[in-house]
């Protein structure tokens, strides 16, 4: 899974429009997949660091808590209804967003498009949580 986040960070670097959208986004985001935690630190739209958790001393701005199967369904080329969007996952009870949700909303297009890179990058990077 760490490889997947790293690959998504590299895919982000190849998308100037996304870096421009994220230029004011310098925050740490917690992604929780079941028992596993990943702290994604963004610096001005770049994914600067990914640290696996769990950690009690890493501050984060907002968290997306879901499970590996839900994320795998989210990353399908044509996801099923409900699995097609972060808030879809929330609506069907497969994810929760915690923390400073307003920061997420202010950067929503950036974060959603970053997360969707896992879908767009193509094959060969299966989720193994």
């Amino acid at each position: 899974m760490l490889d997947k986040w790293t690959a998504m960070g590299a895919a982000l670097e190849a998308r100037p429009h996304l870096l421009r959208l994220g230029r004011l986004f310098s925050e740490t985001v917690l992604i929780q997949l079941g028992e596993d935690e990943y702290y994604l630190t963004f610096e001005k739209g770049h994914l600067a660091d990914v640290t696996p958790g769990p950690s009690r001393k890493t501050p984060w701005r907002f968290a997306l808590r879901t499970d590996a199967d839900a994320l795998k369904a989210f990353w399908q080329p044509i996801p099923e209804a409900g699995f097609h969007d972060v808030f879809g996952l929330v609506k069907i009870g497969r994810a929760r967003v915690d923390g400073d949700i307003l920061v997420l909303v202010k950067n929503l297009r950036f974060f959603k498009e970053f997360l969707a890179l896992g879908r767009d990058m193509g094959r060969g990077l299966e989720v193994s949580a």
Partner: peptide
């Protein structure tokens, strides 16, 4: 299932945030 006040604030672009939110309702097809 959202706070409608998100979409009219002096410190952010309500239209861009609104678009990012409603994109949740567009089919991947």
């Amino acid at each position: 299932w959202y706070d409608i006040d998100w979409f009219h604030r002096p410190d952010a672009h309500g239209g861009e945030m609104g678009a990012a939110l409603v994109s949740a309702n567009i089919s991947p097809y």
